[in-house]
């Protein structure tokens, strides 16, 4: 399902505008099978691990959130976190994982 030719799909929700100092919620969803590496086919062969291993978010170049992912996290992981709206600018989201998996997304926020 994550095979070659399939675009890595990610969806990110955050407010477009916030007041300075406000705590904003950011919700991210990444399309991924999260194959644990512990399952076997019906012929007994081990299905190789294929998971997202790392997620990070930076806000105007400064990392504000990072997560390490492990086997047995559900498919299509939803990661929700919050940060403080300090200044207008760009949030960059980056997912990476096994078999060269990489996805990025960026979003603007204006802080008033």
């Amino acid at each position: 399902m994550n095979g070659p030719g399939r675009k890595a799909r990610v969806v990110v929700h955050l407010p477009q505008q916030a007041r300075r100092g406000e705590i904003i919620e950011i919700r991210t969803l990444a399309g991924h099978d999260m194959e644990t590496g512990f399952r076997r086919t019906q012929f007994g062969e081990l299905i190789p691990r294929d998971i997202i291993t790392r997620f990070a978010c930076s806000y105007n170049g400064v990392e504000v959130f990072r997560a390490e992912l492990h086997p047995a996290i559900a498919a299509n992981p939803l990661i929700t976190f919050s940060t403080v709206a300090s200044e207008s600018g760009t949030l960059e989201f980056r997912w990476s994982g096994d078999n060269g998996y990489a996805a990025t997304h960026s979003a603007q926020i204006s802080v008033v």
Partner: peptide, 13 residues
């Protein structure tokens, strides 16, 4: 909620 419904990934496809 479109921010949490994982089927949104299929809608994009």
């Amino acid at each position: 909620d479109d921010a949490t419904n994982p089927a949104v990934l299929w809608l994009l496809d």
